[in-house]
């Protein structure tokens, strides 16, 4: 098993190197010369030359990349132009907020998506199945920022049940943290719930026709036991690995959700950085998201092997 994990980590390394080249290349897309912008209105040639040397802009681009990648490997993602803080520090302070949001969204998605998927497969062809499919398609088609706005309008503005914005750490005030995050987590989890529902349904439909399920039914076992103990345990495997993959997507989806509910997380950090032309932060966020995404892919692969006895034996 360890050898399998090591092999997967080794395979991920070239991908990470390519991602880093791409993220480094992003700054080359910037129109104009960034050094001239940094030099201010005077554009003193001495200052320009000093800045070029400082930021190694006189070196060939491959050398610039190697210096940059070396800094990144040492955990140095540069300094934020806006706050003058190290980008790594900024990301480390915002990431826990987004991870909390993503975990809560994932809980919502699993609680909604999996039972609905099972029910839809078991009642295939009935109105329950039709309704579940319509809801899933709507969940996939609804822009989550609009759902967020509509929920604020209904739950916060009209009913006054939950706060429309804000954030509190769960370590400081767990109840307030829960009340401020419940709506954003639901919004973020909706699309994911729809995807999980569709996959659970299709996995369950495949399993429900398998011989061992028919045998279990023929033995006279209760329908619920057959569905939950025999069918679901086998159908859930791809769904769990898919959840790990989709967790990475949640980090991206959080950008808009955090913007609507004014949550000071990772997503809001990238948006603020974009508007303040804080490109080091934008690069840092993209790189960290990609690393997280690759990490979740790795976890999905490992989980798939761990949970599948046949593959476990092979590995």
């Amino acid at each position: 098993m360890l050898a399998f994990i090591l092999r997967r980590v080794l395979i991920a390394i070239p991908t990470l190197i390519l991602v880093s080249i791409f993220v480094f290349g992003l700054q080359k897309l910037l129109p104009g010369d960034p050094i001239l912008v940094m030099a201010g209105e005077d554009r003193d040639p001495a200052v320009i030359e000093f800045l070029r040397e400082k930021y190694r802009m006189n070196d060939p681009i491959p050398m610039q990349y190697l210096y940059w990648a070396g800094d990144v490997l040492r955990g140095d993602l540069g300094i934020s132009l806006r706050t003058n803080q190290p980008v790594t520090e900024l990301i480390a302070s915002k990431l826990p907020v987004t991870i909390q949001l993503a975990i809560m969204a994932m809980i919502f998605a699993l609680l909604i998506g999996i039972p609905t998927g099972i029910l839809s497969a078991v009642r295939k062809g009935t109105w329950v199945d039709w309704l579940a499919n319509v809801v899933a398609l709507s969940g996939l088609s609804i822009p989550n920022f609009w759902l967020g706005i509509m929920l604020i309008l209904l739950v916060s503005v009209n009913l006054g049940w939950l706060p429309a914005s804000g954030y509190e750490s769960p370590w400081v005030d767990p109840v307030k943290s829960l009340t401020t995050m419940i709506m954003p987590a639901f919004v973020l989890g909706t699309g994911l719930a729809a995807t999980l529902m569709r996959h659970t349904r299709s996995a369950m439909l495949g399993v429900l026709q398998a011989d061992y399920v028919r045998t279990a039914e023929a033995k006279g076992l209760r329908r619920n036991t057959v569905i939950l103990k025999h069918a679901f345990r086998n159908a859930v495997l791809p769904v769990i690995t898919l959840s790990a993959l989709l967790f990475g997507e949640l980090l991206a989806g959080a950008v808009l959700t955090e913007q609507i509910f004014t949550i000071p997380g990772f997503g809001k950090l990238i948006v603020d950085a974009v508007f303040n032309r804080d490109y080091a932060v934008v690069q840092g966020v993209v790189l960290c998201t990609a690393i997280g995404f690759i990490g979740m892919n790795l976890l999905a692969d490992v989980l798939y092997v761990l949970l599948n006895p046949k593959l476990r034996a092979l590995s």
Partner: peptide, 14 residues
């Protein structure tokens, strides 16, 4: 490996 929206935001920003 870079989520669709994050990539689009980064490209649009640059």
């Amino acid at each position: 490996a870079m989520p669709f929206l994050i990539l689009a935001i980064a490209l649009a920003a640059f």
